[in-house]
Write a protein that binds this DNA or RNA. Structure first.
Lengths: 131, 131, 131, 131
DNA sequence: GTGGTCTAGACCACC
DNA sequence: GTGGTCTAGACCACA
């Protein structure tokens, strides 16, 4: 598992870790049941305090993305949606909207934006972990 | 201008103000040259500490979204992209990717996600402020 | 708000804080919208590291029991059940069952156990915050 | 003896074993003098590290719930209360209180909670191992 | 002044 | 060796 922290980003370190693990799972790079690196090992790898890694894992666990079993390790959980249709639409659409607003403000043409979207969606959906 | 603050959101208040002003501009609800409310007035309207409003305006000004003319007020600036092609692609695609990852993790079907995207993009691009 | 930590308990400190705040809310001692003590102040009061208090508050926030607004403070949220009927039955009954098993193993008579239960339930339900 | 471990539970494995053995005794499924499986056999049955089983047995033995007779095996002991009245009241009532607080916070009506309690108490007390 | 993030490091519980 | 808890303390973001 390759995690890269951008210290210049305004996104907190623990959030970057969460983002990347969720991304790897969504991309199918991490499969259900896979073991993810122990807190201490990942901390050494990316030169981050173990508590920060633990915080990311804790949040992922709480979101149902991973299962941590004290003493044995941390594992990728099955993707399961706990939100109702309305909530997940709000969640996803809000984020889409932020992207579109930024596109308009940086004068990205609609056609280009749509191409980007299609390319990204294809990367995530054109895989084994179909829905 | 209607700004609504969600105190339960994890997004900070000043950021919600920025989001909504940029959104209104992108939607064409606010046009170039329109006056936006003075800090003190908006602070009274939405019952928020004036410092918080001022912080939002300061950042919008720095992003070139609004212009403050001392003595006369604050006005919507012309949209102008200051980023190069690569930077704005990174900016927009990162946000799109976050949206897609969340869609996958909440088991939104690709088709539905695409519909949502099209609907939102249409709302922002099918307007006077064409690019 | 009076919080007492039992250092001999096997229940972690942060969990004891959670228990007692939830208890005070359930008893009506804390009402919706009430401000609860700032992290640092409570830390001084009960002589506990602020991070431990923060951890308790974080979990309460995530459980929807309180709302924390960075910069302004932490407030009691409205009680709202997010679980379905089945989940909350499992949650509550598992705890009841642990209590009953312990009662049997310490040879508490059924009648006495029932009295205790009624007395406690009365304390929590015989109040303004009726359901 | 049927023991089921829930790896997703936040309750540690050794504690789940203790819970279930005490529950089976309280329910009368295990009677005084019954032999419980050797550590190694149970470890194979439920696919758990033998050390974990041993830890559970050790604690049960210490609580006077089972007796280990070297060479012949491990047996269910007679239920005997070693606590004084005050201690066992505190023990049981604390657990009841946790259950009631959670009931209030998940908006379980008092009547429903009482029904659940009665049903569970009936299951444990309406049996041969009367007190 | 409020809570949030991150670091550093000790100690414990669990498997 | 695994994750969890707790402490101590610096620094930042927010209102």
């Amino acid at each position: 598992m390759h995690i890269k922290i951008d210290n210049l980003s305004d996104r907190p370190v623990y959030q970057q870790i969460i983002d990347q693990i969720k991304r790897d799972i969504a991309l199918g790079r991490l499969a259900v049941g896979d073991k993810i690196p122990p807190v201490r090992q990942l901390a050494l790898d990316i030169v981050i305090n173990p508590n920060t890694i633990a915080k990311a894992y804790r949040q992922l666990e709480q979101d149902g993305v991973i299962n941590t079993r004290a003493g044995s390790g941390t594992f990728v959980a099955e993707i399961q949606n706990t939100l109702n249709n309305e909530s997940r639409k709000v969640l996803v659409c809000n984020q889409l909207e932020l992207a579109v607003v930024d596109a308009v403000h940086t004068q990205v043409a609609q056609k280009e934006l749509t191409n980007w979207f299609s390319e990204i969606a294809g990367r995530y959906y054109g895989r084994s972990n179909k829905i």
